[in-house]
């Protein structure tokens, strides 16, 4: 029966050709894969594959340039917004996006992030927040929640000793250079659709020269959190979203 249905005219969904055929190196169930896919789908839907330049970070997504079928540049650790600034100024007609994790954007790259957002560069910044350093083995990040166990906070993050978790998205929302700041997630179909609309908006803003569009994606790190992918998504919903609530923080007209 299903053979009657599997025909080109009945196609509802297929992997976008803006992603390469390479199998991603991310752990099973990682939100990076989903986010890559929806960014690529937005590029496909807008028809801007030839006019898009992506900036890859350092961290788990360091090999992002192997997966996007667009021109990519690799930045030094944390410097993706600075490189995106340069690319956008040299090629103002191109769509430029940076793709960074929380260790890259909110730790070593805090200065670049804040100054690019404050200058109001006309770029799209995608920020994956999973509250941990995934690639290096699950160490504590600035975004790690209170009492959350990591390799370097094995008894949980102690605020008195290790400081408070950083809400960088709230910080950049206050800066005059940002035009669109939102926090999304990608662990259910409805949230993926919503996140895709937010990323579409963030790319559309570049046409109108509005300033930085900043999309945070609260994601899981099932290897770092030491959970199964489905349990990690459950944990994300119960713990991460209480501290990092979803929704738009700033939408300028």
């Amino acid at each position: 029966m299903s053979k009657d249905i599997i025909k080109p005219e009945n196609l509802v969904y297929r992997r976008t050709p803006v992603l390469t055929k390479n199998t991603m190196h991310y752990c099973p169930g990682c939100g990076h894969g989903t986010t890559h896919r929806i960014v690529a789908e937005v590029i496909e839907e807008m028809g801007i594959q030839e006019q898009t330049i992506g900036i890859a970070p350092v961290g788990c997504a360091v090999l992002a340039y192997n997966y996007f079928e667009v021109d990519m540049q690799e930045a030094a650790h944390g410097r993706a917004p600075a490189l995106a600034t340069a690319v956008k100024r040299l090629k103002p007609d191109f769509f430029v996006f940076s793709y960074q994790g929380d260790g890259d954007l909110a730790a070593i790259g805090t200065a670049e992030t804040i100054h690019a957002c404050n200058r109001g560069e006309n770029i799209t910044m995608i920020f994956i927040n999973n509250g941990i350093y995934g690639m290096t083995g699950g160490q504590m990040a600035p975004t790690t929640l209170e009492d959350m166990k990591t390799a370097t906070s094995p008894y949980g993050r102690d605020i008195a000793m290790m400081g408070n978790p950083l809400k960088i998205t709230e910080i950049v929302a206050q800066l005059p250079g940002t035009c669109y700041v939102t926090r999304q997630a990608v662990y259910t179909p409805a949230l993926v659709r919503k996140c895709k609309r937010a990323i579409r908006q963030a790319f559309e803003n570049q046409k109108e020269n509005k300033g930085v569009s900043f999309v945070e994606v609260v994601s899981n790190c099932n290897s770092g959190w030491k959970m199964t992918p489905v349990a990690a998504n459950q944990w994300l919903e119960e713990n991460m979203l209480a501290f990092y609530p979803l929704g738009d923080l700033k939408v300028s007209k």
């Binding site: 249905i5 992997r15 991603m24 099973p28 896919r37």
Partner: peptide, 8 residues
């Protein structure tokens, strides 16, 4: 996450 499913 890996885009392995095609739907008809």
């Amino acid at each position: 996450p890996d885009g392995v499913i095609t739907v008809y």
